[in-house]
Design a protein around this nucleic acid. Structure first.
Lengths: 218, 218
DNA sequence: CGCCATGTTGACCCAATTCAACGAGAGTGG
DNA sequence: CCACTCTCGTTGAATTGGGTCAACATGGCG
């Protein structure tokens, strides 16, 4: 899933030479909506959220990006300001790859370009599906989907709780609803025995039923 | 906006030689969600909708594609079944370009690949914005946005009505709501003097106010 | 220990869906 | 040319879903 696998050895070496490794603390902004980037950020460790502020002042999380994923490539390819903000959800280690490197590889390395292209088409498919979900499905279904997604992509900690500990309001921003309703819906899931919570931590107890809910069968 | 501009003359010629021109009548399916395509469709004339069926049985229109736009390239690049259905909204003329041609050009013509890549990033930005709108904005705002979009992209007929005459339920599928609410919201706009209607035809009367509504200022 | 951010709950209100009914135009077959 | 039916547009009323505001709890952290 990492387009950088397609880079030739020399390119990789040349990138490693020049790359800066930056560290971000939990909560730090990697970049903000509307900034002009002069490179991309490749996540070496930690998890970040990509979000966009709506007119009404609320954030919508569009994507969660983790190790190996690249932030900001879109803005770079279309040479526009960033459409999204990137924020660290954990302490992160990120390496910065200057614009010129990416441009060179896009021009000279067809394998790389095709890998990026494939990534984009995958993201586009996901985005289309998300549009349908947001437009057509109630919060209960979207929350079930989000919880399963969090387990699928970020796994569990050593006590079987979801590894990624999002704040309630971050989960609400993923689902696209108000924090209060998110909490109430989590409460409903708990009452139904689908999840358990301890503080902000969440454990999935009945993935079958959650899947059924996600698909609108309950 | 057309990635085919980046094709070399020989490629274009070779494509023209082999291309089949297909005609579709209003309402015809060009392809359906889940089909496997062995080529892409380039719209020569007419307008089509790209839509996806949600679990709950309702359609969501994700994109409207018109002259010069290409349908099905995503499925082809990621070699998957189509994620969306394409349906003719008017009588259409479409030319089919077989898979092998696209693959050849993606392999050999970096200019073409980069053009497609740029297209994808643009669509991805639009998709992200749509996600935020669907998740965060009420129907009234989304409808105002949709009407302005229809004027912007498809223009007016000779009586200043929106050129593209969508059925109420198609507009509802663009906005992501039920037909009844769509009609009521149109009614509200009419009462406020923002639009006029004659049968299914719609005329925008006050684009400033519509823009304000779209942005959540009213 | 106190403070501030976050989590939680209740109550109220508005937005949106749903079901049901009716009207109007567009074929279609008699 | 007229019923006939079918789809589409429209309206009403009932119900549910979701958002908002306000209050209060809790829990890390200086």
């Amino acid at each position: 899933m990492n387009s950088f696998k397609a880079l030739r050895k020399e390119e990789l070496k040349s990138m490693s030479d020049r790359k800066e490794t930056k560290k971000f603390k939990k909560g730090d902004a990697i970049f903000r909506e509307g900034e002009r980037l002069n490179g991309v950020y490749c996540v070496r460790d930690g998890i970040s959220k990509l979000s966009k502020l709506s007119d009404n002042g609320k954030d919508q999380i569009v994507k969660l990006a983790t190790k190996g994923e690249v932030l900001g490539q879109r803005s770079l390819i279309s040479s526009e300001c960033t459409n999204l903000s990137a924020t660290a959800l954990e302490d992160m280690e990120v390496c910065f790859i200057p614009k010129s490197h990416i441009e060179d590889s896009l021009r000279d390395n067809a394998l790389f370009t095709n890998a990026v292209l494939k990534l984009m088409t995958d993201e586009l498919r996901i985005a289309d599906n998300t549009i349908v979900n947001m437009a057509q499905k109630p919060v209960r279904q979207r929350l079930a989907a989000a919880l399963l997604y969090l387990e699928e992509n970020f796994g569990l900690d050593n006590e079987d709780y979801l590894y990624l500990k999002l704040s309630r309001s971050d989960i609400a921003d993923v689902v696209g609803t108000a924090t209060e309703l998110l909490i109430r819906t989590l409460g409903a899931f708990k009452k139904e025995g689908l999840i358990a919570t301890q503080g902000k931590r969440i454990k999935l107890l009945d993935k079958k039923k959650l899947t059924a809910i996600k698909e609108g069968l309950q």
